[in-house]
């Protein structure tokens, strides 16, 4: 009922929320703010694990297969690793990987999508085939194959895994940005810029991209969540980040066979992982509510 809406508040409508309004709306989304704070605190906490508990993730203690206690918050595994230190290390790794992934994917997706939408024609069709291909690609198997191929060149390091995942995750954002640019390029301020003699680069970077930032930010958050799930799934299958570095996926894999006898080895790292993804999703949901004007009728 778009015309009705515009009739109601034709003079109050803010076409695109400015940052202050966005912050205010996000701030009123309590769950999202809590989730964001939790994620930040959790991340900061990973740097204080050793001073607080006395254990780091590499250390082996004499306590083997102990349940959770005041000494070992999450218990220990069969060779004496402190599971809390390991889980927190895994948490930090996941956050690092996912941020690198999101940065790469967001940059590629935004720029390629904007270029597609602005130039149209053959450029659009060319990149479009790649986007279509990446969108339907079964990501996990392909990454597994790539992992076996790249081990020799440091393929299981944190950075390498992150970059590879990032190169595969830009397609959804590119599609969205392209669609939005298609709509924005018809707006008269873009034509006005062209009529003033603005170059393509200026139009893309000064006018188009700033105006698709809402979607970009929401998608970047989604990409963070996807990246965490992909990274841990790879590690779970043994194709991701390799020991001695820790991944929550690998911890779950090691713990799952003893889920009945030593539940803490399986359930606690898993809970950390889910909490992280949940936090990211809540933040994403809050951002969507704050940035997407269509949601504003919500009472």
């Amino acid at each position: 009922m778009t015309d009705l809406g515009s009739d109601i508040s034709a003079h109050q409508v803010v076409v695109r929320a400015q940052w202050r309004t966005v912050l205010r709306r996000f701030g009123s989304h309590r769950l999202a703010v809590t989730a964001l704070l939790l994620a930040i605190i959790g991340y900061a906490f990973t740097y204080f694990v050793e001073p607080l508990t006395g254990w780091n993730y590499k250390q082996l203690s004499a306590d083997l297969s102990q349940g959770p206690s005041s000494a070992h918050w999450f218990g220990t595994d069969t060779i004496g690793h402190d599971m809390f230190a390991q889980s927190m290390r895994g948490l930090r790794v996941s956050i690092h990987v996912s941020i690198v992934v999101a940065a790469i994917a967001t940059l590629l997706g935004t720029v390629l999508g904007a270029v597609q939408g602005w130039f149209r024609g053959r450029v659009d069709a060319g990149v479009g085939v790649l986007v279509d291909f990446l969108l339907i690609l079964p990501l996990l198997p392909v990454l597994m194959v790539l992992a076996t191929r790249t081990r020799a060149i440091g393929g299981s390091s944190l950075m390498f895994v992150a970059v590879v995942i990032g190169l595969f995750l830009w397609a959804p954002l590119a599609r969205v940005v392209r669609g939005e640019v298609f709509a924005i390029r018809e707006k008269e301020y873009i034509e006005a810029a062209a009529a003033l003699g603005a170059s393509n680069t200026r139009i893309i970077f000064r006018h188009l991209i700033p105006n698709v930032m809402s979607s970009v930010i929401v998608y970047a958050t989604l990409t963070v969540a996807t990246a965490i799930l992909v990274e841990t799934a790879l590690a779970f299958l043994g194709f991701g980040i390799q020991p001695p570095e820790v991944s929550l996926g690998a911890l779950v894999d090691e713990g799952r066979d003893s889920a009945r006898t030593r539940w803490w080895l399986f359930y606690l790292p898993g809970a950390v992982l889910i909490s992280l993804v949940l936090c990211v999703n809540f933040v994403g949901d809050g951002l969507r509510d704050a940035l997407d004007p269509r949601q504003r009728k919500r009472p």
Binding site: V15, R16, K187, A192, N211
Partner: peptide, 14 residues
């Protein structure tokens, strides 16, 4: 120079 129709759409909101 040119002036466009839609005063909402002809100015970059950002």
């Amino acid at each position: 120079q040119v002036v466009f129709q839609d005063p909402m759409a002809s100015l970059d909101p950002r």
